[in-house]
Amino acid sequence: MLGVKGMENTVYIRMRNRVQVKPNDSIFLKDIAQIISREEIHSTLEKLPVHKVSLEDNNIIIIDVMMVVRMISKQYPTVEVQAIGPPQTIIEVMLKRRPVSYSLFMVVWFLLFIGSAITIMNFHEDVSMQAVHQRIYTMITGKQESKPLLLQIPYSFGLGLGMILFFNHFFKKRINEEPSPLEVEMFNYQQSLDQYVILNENKESLKRLDDD
């Protein structure tokens, strides 16, 4: 009986990884964590105010699980709080999103286009691709040809095909359902950014860093 009673007095919380909020939102416990508790306190726990987003906050706020535990213990001194999963939640304040400027986008597009064209031409010059193509052409046909376009035009389209295959995108359509290397790369980059803000924006971890 005691055991059951003890279990009923436990609150399990699991912090969410990333939460997006609007400026001036109030953040409640249910927004940043999943909660399991006994029925009577569940709805009050869900509406426990955790933070009010204000202008002083930058666009990243870190809520540490210890702070949440402290708040719950203050409200309900008898409950035991069990934290499972990530030790903090990253709150991203979605400031008014400036619309992406199309002119800037076009500039970047043009930059990539020209840069890509120039790099492949430099590469071809660097490795004497023209001479190699001429030799391959002669090897196969026995004829001399200064411009072996029959080899070179498929080669040029193959370049694009190879890149699309590698990135697994045929324009918008995917070849199979696995994430492309690019999506994995984006994910890894986001993880590194998260790791950085967890250590550097979290006041609790900063305190320890400042001491020594």
Partner: peptide, 20 residues
């Protein structure tokens, strides 16, 4: 991002064709 990748892909094809 796909549109940016297409910039690079088309750039590669165009640059190569132009060269040959």
């Amino acid at each position: 991002i796909v549109i940016l990748i297409m910039a690079i892909v088309i750039g590669k094809i165009a640059g190569s064709l132009f060269q040959w």
